[in-house]
């Protein structure tokens, strides 16, 4: 298959996929095609798709590709769907989430050390919202549970992967001013 033939196929697959579709998955479906060719076709497709500047965009989220609406048109979509944004996370939950995102895997006592305040209710909220997941236990006294961020976290925060988070040192400047 030529790259031009591949592109529309990739486009429909990304469109129908319920979650961001991973390249690995695309390789499986297009087993006769070279993975390198698929990679290239996806890249080009994304570029072409997004250069249209339409209402939709194709992005890499949580390690896969996804077609979604552009945020600036939310007003009209909400009017159509008649929905309101879901309840926002409290600042306490967000701070806890930030600590977990940057220090993962991290235990509750370690989070307490940084935030200076116990975070158990925030942890519960984050677990309920599936933004964090237990990541085993730390081999120390009491074997506390360690937490890390989930795939849902990447999706909800629109991140390709964890490395896309700005480095914590970038906040150093903000912190000292």
């Amino acid at each position: 298959m030529t790259k031009e033939e591949l592109k529309p196929i990739l486009e429909v697959l990304i469109f129908v996929s319920e979650e961001p579709i991973k390249l690995k998955h695309l390789y499986e479906i297009l087993a006769d095609e070279e993975p390198a060719e698929i990679n290239l076709a996806v890249q080009e497709l994304a570029q072409e798709f997004n250069s249209r500047e339409g209402g939709l965009e194709m992005r890499e989220i949580a390690g896969g590709w996804r077609i979604s609406t552009r945020p600036q048109y939310h007003e009209y979509i909400r009017a159509y769907l008649k929905t309101k944004p879901s309840a926002k996370l409290s600042l306490a939950s967000l701070e806890t989430l930030a600590v977990i995102a940057y220090k993962q895997p991290v235990t509750i006592p370690e989070i307490l050390e940084i935030r200076g305040v116990s975070s158990s209710s925030a942890i519960k909220t984050l677990l309920d919202r599936r933004l964090i997941v237990p990541k085993g236990r730390k081999e120390c006294v009491g074997r506390p549970v360690m937490y890390g961020t989930s795939k849902e976290f990447l999706i909800q925060f629109g991140l390709k992967d964890l490395s896309e988070l700005p480095s914590i040192e970038d906040f150093e400047e903000l912190a000292t001013t």
Binding site: L97, A98, F171, E172, A175
Partner: peptide
């Protein structure tokens, strides 16, 4: 720093 990170999130 983490407060700033929380704001970013």
């Amino acid at each position: 720093k983490f407060k700033a990170a929380a704001e970013m999130l």
